[in-house]
Design a protein around this nucleic acid. Sequence first.
DNA 1: TGGCTGCTGTAACGTATATTTCAGATCGGC
DNA 2: GCCGATCTGAAATATACGTTACAGCAGCCA
Lengths: 280, 280
Amino acid sequence: MVSDSGASIAERLRRDLGRLTPNEKRAAQRLLADFPMAGLDTAARFGEAAGVSAPTILRMIAKLGFSSYGAFQDDLKAELAAQRETPLTKGMKVHPDDPLAGFAQAAIANLRATAENLPRNEFAAVATLLADPRYRLHFLGGRFTDAIADYMTAHLRVIRPDVRRVGGQPAAWLDQLLDIGRRDVVVLFDIRRYSDDLRDFAERAAAQGAIIVLVTDQWLSPISKVARRVLPAHVAVPSVWDSNAGLLMLVEALIAAVVERRGEEGRRRLEALEAIRSRP
Amino acid sequence: MVSDSGASIAERLRRDLGRLTPNEKRAAQRLLADFPMAGLDTAARFGEAAGVSAPTILRMIAKLGFSSYGAFQDDLKAELAAQRETPLTKGMKVHPDDPLAGFAQAAIANLRATAENLPRNEFAAVATLLADPRYRLHFLGGRFTDAIADYMTAHLRVIRPDVRRVGGQPAAWLDQLLDIGRRDVVVLFDIRRYSDDLRDFAERAAAQGAIIVLVTDQWLSPISKVARRVLPAHVAVPSVWDSNAGLLMLVEALIAAVVERRGEEGRRRLEALEAIRSRP
DNA sequence: TGGCTGCTGTAACGTATATTTCAGATCGGC
DNA sequence: GCCGATCTGAAATATACGTTACAGCAGCCA
């Protein structure tokens, strides 16, 4: 039986994390990270996976209150068996003094709402558009969402050519407008406290014949008026600002869909890049 | 890897029950009865629980097609881990022609796993650290996670002073090391396909006395060796790359926690900034 | 009843593992 | 900048384990 009062091993790990030495902590984190597989291995393999030695594992286990590594594994197995019997439907408990759990729950609700409400054909159309090598792509975001634009640019550059980042000061954006026309797709990120600069840029680009793709929040940025495609994500969380986790998920799902559409050509490009990167 | 074609161990047990000798059958039934606890024990204890000897257990395992008892246990553990990882896969609908729904489901599982496994005091300690105006903060990420670093920098700059971005080429990072010492906190983002440049930077910064905060994936970047604080997020999704939605959620939750800790001072700072921005 | 076949546990073996010891390395404090 | 305390892994040790060989035993047929 457990030598501690009913606390699960994972809970004990988190609670006693402070008492542990640096390498012991590393081992504990490793165990928490892929719970409980690591703990079922031998101490040596567990240590190797965590990047520490077997004795460090044993010291960590001892500090948690187990009399031996075997006793620890017995408890771990018992806990697993107990969990298996109960239906897994139990949701996450929300503790009033656990801000992380609350935040996570809100973010999860956002992700779910985003995925449920997003028009499938719109999503598919955008993916097809971004996978089409005949178009040049341009990415730009707002005050905080510009980081998301960065993220998407970095990924798409890997799987296709003609991916460009609109950067610098808003005044400098207009310079890049010169080359934008019918063969260009402009992907814009604009969420609440919508940016006037972005709107201006979008309107000018649209006037020149570019295809505007807008990624925005559920209340829709005014840019949606000039956008050919609109992808709304849910962003509300209990915080001063909104959460862009749903937005990021949407972007990542898009990237995956583009990879899918690029097919063999995309894979070859990936492999070529790997070859370049692996050369010293 | 399983030596049989995808069949679960329990399925194999039931299928081959006929081929087994009486005592072997008893052992197999015992294993099915309290699956998988019995199989995780030693062969001797397993045998004792089933009322047979250890060699009988081994013969039974061999007849199931496993090369050794150890191989059997490894498969058992892998099966367990796989079931644990996605507790909802069996209950939820699989979306064959809706990639977005599948992606969202995986991302949600990541967010939940991230929130559940993250040590609370580690989270709190990092939030307190980032809210402490006596420290200077430096942010840096890897190939794709640098965008997350950008995102966090942009937010924290609003709510506190002395927030810096480590930018440019890896060689240029080292210049910024000159000013880094005991009063500096270096926040690094490093996920799979870990960056050697980042690791080098982290080691040097740590050697100079800086506090390293690492945000990484569940397999822990090697930087965790020199990091004072480690925050692991789950990142696996059905895509060529990992998903950083959990990572972003973690960052956003951190930001919210820092805002909380900054309290009145932070609010005043926010209002001052609003005043500046609203002036035309 | 005798001999054959297949099943099963005991006992011995070698290996792998947990555990302990100890010396080098590292960090923090005066 | 030196010294003490603490942490950590390599090596040694003891223990436990999986594995194998072998003999007893039961069931079965002639």
